[in-house]
């Protein structure tokens, strides 16, 4: 016993060092994969409010660019309004297109929550964004996030007022995507280096892939609606030993100047999860 106490006495500095180091590394490696608590993230109340104050100052720097993007999006949306083409198609349709909005044949599946990015990184190995909306605004874990240019990421965790987004610049983002023209689908990954480029995995190499064809979301997991832009294919390289292409995608979103985003709420998600849970596990094998 005395020897043991003497041992602790002698190596106490190293033991304290090792103990604290284990705490830090455990935190790092568990938080990386399982966001279990709110503590120690930018989604906590104190840090969130501090970052909001900073955003109050820095938001004006990119005002002009943001105004332009919002205006472009407004134009795109306005052009889809029924009013936009009532005049032209009056002869073909007996009534105005406005009637279609209340059509019982269509049920709304996605609704959107506007949000502002108050903190973000793009040069780390795993990059996260902090948004100024939280559970009180209806944000929950696993919802998709996109900007007017394309998809941004998935909600990682959230508290009442703030939430953290796992962006497409993280290693295990795994979004279901497809090539818009041919319908070939695969998974989105990130190689951890360039904030402008992602990788598409799982496309069979017996297909002819056209460079610069558009890549969009497939809408498989119920996180993103079908057809949101992801980027364009800029390079194709064969994967060694597998009949697959490795496709490099140039992201449509510029993560360096991202400010306005929308969180996607899937109103039919519970239904989809329920029906998918009923698949018997044997079928997978």
């Amino acid at each position: 016993m005395r020897n043991f106490l003497a041992f602790i006495q002698r190596f106490r500095v190293f033991l304290v060092f090792a103990g604290l180091q284990i705490v830090a590394l455990t935190l790092y490696f568990t938080f990386l994969s399982y966001p279990r608590t709110q503590f120690l993230t930018t989604a906590s109340y104190v840090n969130g409010s501090l970052l909001s104050v900073r955003h109050q100052v820095s938001k004006h720097f990119a005002l002009e660019e943001n105004n332009r993007l919002l205006q472009e999006e407004n134009i795109a949306l306005r052009s889809q309004l029924p009013q936009s083409y009532v005049q032209l198609e009056k002869e073909h349709l007996k009534d105005s297109m406005l009637a279609e909005i209340d059509d019982t044949l269509y049920q709304q599946q996605y609704s959107y929550i506007p949000a502002t990015v108050i903190n973000s990184t793009h040069d780390k190995r795993n990059n996260y964004l902090t948004l100024n909306v939280g559970k009180l605004h209806g944000v929950e874990r696993g919802m998709g996030v996109f900007s007017s240019e394309g998809i941004v990421g998935v909600i990682h965790n959230s508290n009442d007022y703030y939430s953290v987004v796992k962006s497409c610049l993280t290693e295990n983002i795994n979004v279901d995507i497809m090539i818009a023209s041919s319908g070939q689908f695969g998974l989105l990954k990130w190689n951890g280096v360039s904030p402008n480029k992602g990788t598409m995995w799982g496309v069979s190499n017996d297909l002819d892939i056209k460079l610069w064809s558009k890549v969009v979301t497939r809408g498989g997991g119920g996180i993103f609606p079908r057809g949101l832009p992801v980027g364009k294919i800029s390079k194709k390289t064969p994967v060694e030993g597998k009949p697959l292409w490795e496709l490099t995608i140039n992201y449509a979103v510029d993560y360096k100047s991202l400010q306005r985003v929308y969180v996607i709420k899937n109103l039919l998600r519970v239904e989809q999860e329920k029906i998918e849970a009923s698949i018997p596990p044997e079928l997978d094998e």
């Binding site: 604290l20 705490v23 830090a24 590394l25 455990t26 935190l27 790092y28 938080f31 990386l32 503590f39 120690l40 993230t41 930018t42 906590s44 840090n47 501090l50 970052l51 903190n119 990184t121 780390k124 996260y128 902090t130 953290v164």
Partner: peptide, 10 residues
């Protein structure tokens, strides 16, 4: 806690 690095700086 303010840069989402979860123990890396610590």
């Amino acid at each position: 806690s303010m840069s989402n690095t979860y123990g890396l700086h610590a």
